[in-house]
Computed example of a mutant assay.
Amino acid sequence: MKPRLMRTITGAAATALALGGLIAMPGTASAATDAACSASQNKEFDTVGQNYDVSIKLCVYKDGNDYKARAYVSWGDGGLQTGGMEKFNVQVRLEHDDADKATKTVDYSGAMNYSSSGDNYHTTDTYTSTADGGWTADGTVTYNIDLDGDGDKTWALGGSPSV
């Protein structure tokens, strides 16, 4: 193959790859997946050690008649300290017209106390329904700052737009 033709083919393949599959290639099927996410929600937690900076984003996903909700959690300024988080339970809920359909809660306190920064996510089980529209992700954080004597507190998260 001539060098100029090879550059053209390589450039076209790179462009298709960069578009992340927006261009359908012959012989491939593409499933329509809808998603809607909240803006990142940020909070600083005043711990005995360094203050933790946490960011959470909630997303809802629709794939045909299957729905799920996901919480993306990231933190900084944590790790290897006494007086970090005793509890940091992030609950994500899949809701249809404000009624809970699936929930999942994960405690991130161990990871946050161990690692100075990190990110992770967790997802509800898939819920199958023919009901169209009105599906959202919502959530709360129940946290307890170690050694502050204040017990559990709640951070209500803003939900995602609907799909």
Rank of each mutant, 00 (worst) to 15 (best):
I145A: 00
D97V: 02
G83C: 03
V92S: 07
G149R: 10
D148I: 02
G21I: 03
Y52E: 08
G134C: 00
I23S: 12
I23H: 13
Q41R: 09
K101V: 08
D107I: 05
S115I: 07
G139K: 03
C59N: 01
G21L: 01
N65G: 11
L22M: 15
L58A: 05
A32D: 15
F88W: 13
D53H: 09
N51V: 01
M85I: 05
G139I: 01
N51H: 11
V48C: 00
G64C: 01
R70W: 09
A71G: 10
S38T: 05
Y61Q: 02
D150E: 09
K57P: 00
T105D: 06
A29G: 14
K101L: 06
V92P: 06
G76R: 12
Q91L: 09
K43I: 03
T130H: 01
G110W: 11
V141F: 12
D152N: 14
G27I: 02
G79L: 04
N42K: 13
S40W: 14
Y72C: 03
G118C: 05
K57T: 14
A102H: 05
A131L: 10
D46C: 00
K43C: 02
G84T: 09
G118Q: 08
T123A: 03
L80M: 09
V106F: 13
H96K: 11
P26T: 06
F45A: 00
G64W: 05
G149C: 02
N51Q: 09
S116M: 09
G83P: 03
N144P: 00
A29H: 14
A36M: 10
A31T: 15
S40G: 13
A99W: 02
A111T: 13
T124E: 04
D152K: 14
Q81W: 03
S30W: 13
A71V: 08
C37T: 13
S40R: 13
Y108S: 04
S115F: 15
A131F: 10
Q50T: 13
N144M: 08
Y127N: 10
K104A: 12
A102G: 08
A39G: 14
P26I: 04
K43G: 04
A111P: 07
E95L: 07
R93E: 07
Y127C: 01
D63E: 14
T126Y: 06
S38I: 00
Y61N: 01
G149L: 03
N65Y: 12
Y121K: 13
N144C: 04
G118E: 11
V60W: 05
T136M: 00
D97E: 14
K101T: 06
A35S: 15
A29S: 14
S115N: 15
G84K: 06
S117I: 01
T47W: 07
S117D: 13
L22D: 13
G149A: 04
S40A: 12
A111S: 15
K43M: 12
Y143R: 03
L58C: 06
I23F: 15
G110V: 03
G78Q: 02
Q91Y: 04
K87W: 08
K87F: 08
T130K: 08
N65P: 11
D98W: 07
T154V: 10
T33A: 02
W155T: 02
T124G: 06
C37W: 11
L94D: 08
D63C: 09
G110M: 01
D53K: 12
S115L: 14
N51M: 03
G149H: 10
D34H: 12
S30R: 15
K62S: 10
